[in-house]
Amino acid sequence: MTRCFFMAFITTALIGPVTAADMAPETLVQSVATEVLGIIKNDKDIQSGDAKKVVALVEEKILPHFDFTRMTALAMGLNWRKATAEQKAQLTDQFRTLLVRTYSTALTKYRDQTIEYRPLRAQPGDTDVTVRSLIMQPGAEAITIDYSMEKTSASWKVYDVTVAGISLVTTYRDAFTQEVRKAGVDGLIKRLADKNRQLETKGG
């Protein structure tokens, strides 16, 4: 037994762990989802809504697989070009904070639903794919969750999540356009920062 373990250890050390860079997009999504949901299932604090713990989990396990600059650019639409480099960085930062909070709130609501993955519709050379999954829940229609992913130099990165047909990124586009029109790019940055501060003080 010990020897088996040791062998396994040596082999892993030699070959090196399978990193995110080598993973196919659907494998990446599945392994991250399985890991994160497994942690939530066994963590009473998270289930009772411990915001700090969930945010930490999201930051550690989920964030590295998201391309927030791309997400922010898509949510900004044509206004992205109006922003300076510094504004872009600030926007991305604030938008990331907001999305992490939203995602965290959603995760605390997770109970015992099961996930099914639908086959990937992609050609071998594709650099942009959608990984499609179904959340099955008894007595109600299944909810689709699709991850739009792009191959970057490092690995596959998620740039949009679509829940029941509703895209996380484009849903923000009108609100962003409206804010920029009213108060400029700085106005939008301020608005996002205010929203984040407000969520933080609420402890939500």
Partner: peptide, 19 residues
């Protein structure tokens, strides 16, 4: 979740509905 996410609840709901 909706309350946490929305910057402007009206347009958020509108865009979500259309999609």
């Amino acid at each position: 979740i909706f309350e946490a996410a929305a910057l402007d609840r009206y347009s958020f709901l509108r865009d979500a509905y259309m999609q």
